[in-house]
Structure formats: structure tokens, C-alpha cells
Design a protein around this nucleic acid. Structure first.
Lengths: 196, 196
DNA sequence: CATCTAATTAGACATATATTTAATTAGGTG
DNA sequence: CACCTAATTAAATATATGTCTAATTAGATG
């Protein structure tokens, strides 16, 4: 599970009112006003909270005539609630698949990076791609926040397709993205670490 | 698990930095400055986050010379993360144990409440106690927030030991308490409901 | 006891969030 | 199409929260 999705889930469940809503929906679907009555709150408040619950996917809406019923997706709730118990695991698995000698890593870099330090092309094979992503991402300083422009600018110094590289860094957990600003993830959660 | 403990747990895990700290601690204990370095944050920020994690019990500290190492209690983490999947269950169990006829309920009320509407004594048997607590709590309006004084004042109209009654309402999930202010929980999560 | 290091506290700042009232939208139904 | 109901949006307010710098505390060690 993606880091930001996980945070979003826990933010959603980190509120008394929303936990109460979940407790109610566990007994069966309800519509907004009914929830508002049972909790002693106004409808706009319920809209606000339901929106957050829906964003995570654990609650969904079904219309019936004029009334919208909200349902709890218990499978999704279970998956998300337990995701925190698996942090690091995906990476550990990958790390095992990713075991290779320093020699192999250096060979991959040699094959894809020119003498001038430019990336010839993005490898399609996952293993090789991760080596390359790890190699180039080390330019950034841990904890520093970068604007999207800055990230693009750096990528352009070694490869033209900046959008793909940027996206891959986020998808492969090398970087974390929040409102178009980027920062390095701690190496501990990278799928692979190349010492540059 | 108590409603407020559950909310506290999810608030604690609903933050990028704290999830990252958990991910790091899963690999083994670390001290503050090390965490700060790995995440690119200042020590006071780590203190702040660790405090919230410690409050939930999933992280604890052990001193070694001058350095304080923070450890992850994975058992506690698991218990708390899965608690949300069990909401309502405790109550359902209680409800089954608590099945009784209207006649029985009325008999209990008759035995413990005077003609003037005063509570003779708080029943010691759980079943009877819950009937009484449910009976008197219905005075409050759903969603309305009450100061502790107001709650006390109402209890005194029918019983002298206001502290015990107030505490029992919270302990038995009839009411929710936050910074000395009280409100009714939705009936759905009461262990038993008496129609007054 | 003086000094060093790690951790915490205090205070400031910016941002995010929960709730409300009032206004608006979206679908049904006569 | 006019009206009804349920839901949402907008705007306002109060509170909570994440992060930092600067100052302070707590222990360990020479």
C-alpha cells in the first residue's frame, strides 16, 4: 500500500465522529440525515465526514430514489487497517528478489549511463530500472522539499523524459509527493539502494 | 477497546512522519537524533512525534547511557490496528448476554427506583447496573455537549453519589467524555437500551 | 563540579480541520 | 413545470496540529 494512502486512511479513522459513523454503517447502510440524527449533528457535517471516508474507498454511496445510502466496504476496511502491520514487507520481498552483487549493479549502470553521465533510456526490466532510479535519485538531499520544477530541472540534466522518471521515483517509493512538492523517502523504505 | 483510545491511535498513525518513524523502528530500536537525521527533521520535531506514539503505547523508550532508544511494540500495534475491525462486537456479545424481557427490565427499575424517581443504590450485578444506567442516562439529548457540572447537577436530582454514576456512564459506553465535557453516545453502541 | 551530549520544553508560526448557518444543487413526484 | 426532500457547497469560526528556533533539563563522564 502506498504511503500516502495509508496516511489518508488513518487520518480518516482518526476522528470520533467518523469512527461512530463506521460503527453505525457496520450494522447496515444508512442515509445522511439518519446518521445526522443518530449522532446529533447537522447534515453538512455528515457530508464532510462521509467525503473523507469515501475518499479512502471504505465507504461507498448508492442512490435509491431521492435518498443516498452509504455502505461500508468491510473488505477494504480490513485491508487498509492491517496495511500498517505490513510496512516494510513489500520492500523486504523486493530486496530479496533484488539481491545482486556490486559488480552486477555497476554493469547495469555502465550499460545505461553514458560517459557524460546521461541516461540512454529507462530500462524496462524492473530490476534494472530500480538500479537506475536509485542511482540518479541520490542527487537530492534527505528531508529537503523540492518544487516540481526543481525536480524536472535536475532530471533534464541527464534525461529528456523527465515526467516518466519523476513518476517512477514516486511509484517506486524513492520519493514522496505531496501537493506537487517532492522529497526523498528515507533509504530504509527504498526497494534498493545504490551507493553512487 | 475504548472509543477514545481508538481515535487516539488512528490520529497517531495519521501522519506521514509518524508512519515513517514506525517503518524505521520496525527494523530495530533507534534514538532520537538518528531518526531526525534519517528523516531530515530537527530533534524537537521527533520528540513531538515520539510523544504521540508513546501515548498510544505502541512505542516505548529505554535509556542506555546518555542515549534513549525507542522501540516498537509490535503486539500492541497489531492489537490497536485491528481494533477498528471489531467495533460493535463487544456490544453485540453483551447484548446477547443482556437479553431480557421488558417485564424483567421493569422489575429491576421498580426494585431500584423509588416512587419519587430516586435511585436507592447502584446495583452491583452488571446486568442490573446497565439497566439502571440506561434508564437514567436518557435524560440527556443526543449530540448536546454538557459540562461536568451539569452532569453532576442532574445526577444529584436522583442520587447522591454523582461521581460513581458519571464514571459508570463513561465506562459502560453510554456517554463519551472529552476534556471534562460529556455527551451521549449513540444508542447503537450502548450495551443495552431501556425505553424510559 | 564543570562540561558534554541527547532530549525536552516553550513559544511562535503556518496550515489543516471540525462544525455551523445560509444558500444552492440534484433528483423525484404531483 | 412547480414543488419537495435530501444532499452538497460556500463561507465563517474556533480549535488542533506540525515544524522550527532558542532556551532548558537530565544524565554521564572527566
Amino acid at each position: 500500500m502506498q504511503l500516502d494512502k495509508m496516511v489518508q486512511f488513518h487520518k480518516a479513522t482518526g476522528d470520533v465522529t467518523r469512527i461512530r459513523i463506521l460503527a453505525l454503517l457496520k450494522k447496515g447502510p444508512l442515509h445522511g440525515q439518519e446518521i445526522a440524527n443518530k449522532l446529533g449533528l447537522k447534515p453538512p457535517t455528515i457530508t464532510h465526514h462521509i467525503a473523507k471516508l469515501k475518499d479512502t474507498g471504505m465507504v461507498y454511496a448508492r442512490r435509491e430514489k431521492n435518498t443516498i445510502y452509504f455502505h461500508l466496504d468491510e473488505k477494504k476496511l480490513e485491508f487498509m487497517a492491517t496495511a500498517i502491520l505490513r510496512i516494510g514487507e513489500e520492500n523486504l520481498v523486493k530486496n530479496q528478489e533484488m539481491q545482486m552483487t556490486e559488480e552486477e549493479k555497476q554493469k547495469i549502470i555502465k550499460n545505461f549511463v553514458t560517459k557524460e553521465g546521461e541516461l540512454k533510456q529507462i530500462p524496462s526490466q524492473l530490476k534494472k530500472k530500480l538500479v537506475i532510479l536509485s542511482y540518479f535519485v541520490q542527487h537530492f538531499e534527505p528531508g529537503k522539499v523540492y518544487e516540481e520544477k526543481e525536480v524536472n530541472a535536475y532530471i533534464k540534466t541527464f534525461h529528456e523524459d523527465f515526467a516518466t522518471v519523476r513518476r517512477e521515483w514516486v511509484m517506486q517509493h524513492f520519493m514522496y509527493r505531496e501537493n506537487n512538492r517532492y522529497q526523498l523517502n528515507p533509504k530504509e523504505i527504498w526497494p534498493i539502494v545504490i551507493e553512487k
